[in-house]
Amino acid sequence: MAGDTLTSGEYIKHHLTNLTFGQTSDGSWGVAHSAAEAKAMGFWAINLDTMFWSIILGVAFLYFFKKVADNVTTGVPVGMQNFAEWICEFIDTSVRGSFSAKNDLVAPLSLTIFIWIFLMNLMDLVPVDVIPELSKLLGIHYMKVVSTTDPNATFGMAIGVFVLVLYYTIKIKGIGGFLGELTLQPFSSTNPIIKVLFIPINFVLEFVSLIAKPVSLALRLFGNMYAGEMIFILIAIMYSTGLTLGLFAGVLQLGWAIFHILIITLQAFIFMTLTIVYMEMAHNEH
């Protein structure tokens, strides 16, 4: 709930500020005390909350699956193994559906993307004030719990996927094939002179579409989660405006949270599916 001393604007801003560690303007290293200070730290700063939550969730995911993998039985599966197998089966089906080439990386990559993004998104369902207020008790004043509302996280993953796509494109088709894909289509001609003339036009078009892949991946996830988080924050502001609106806000929050279950799963699924599709495009000639 909004603190007594905060205005709504400040409350929102507070919730959207990361816990940034970097070099402050006076030259010492430390945690930024305001959004402006965090911005002033420039590139050489790190969002501790984003890193902490994403790594905690990633490790939790890997711990769970590793435990299942260690105790895996080919007989009758029980408990956690059922769940893990269900997820793996689902990922496997998705990969087989869209990816035709042979690559042992794609399925584990998809599994990691899906579960990791899902878990990071899931933090959105924790009421927006719970963890920040708890961390305030520990003396930490900024805490953005949902890592996917930090573009660093989404771009980090998207760039990882993009690098893989470039790597496999060049590995499968060679540098020539890759450059050819960039410059010799969509416009093509049998006349060599016109073909050369088309190269810059093709390059502009194809380069934009190439760059659009990671950017759209990252921004789609970030935008959806950021907007969802923003709505949770706006609903939370209503709690401080009185009993009637507070009750209404409770109903709203419940409704939005239920709807959000769909969004967080869908966004994780979309990120995964597009990754598979991009990998498929990297492996196949057009």
Binding site: G42, T50, M51, F65, K66, N152, G160
Partner: peptide, 23 residues
């Protein structure tokens, strides 16, 4: 909301997680 070193950190964690899952 600033792009900073977190990007590299996230990229690295992502790579490590994918590697671990695969292996």
């Amino acid at each position: 909301m600033n792009i900073n070193l977190t990007l590299i950190g996230q990229l690295l964690s992502f790579v490590i997680f994918v590697w671990f899952t695969m292996k």
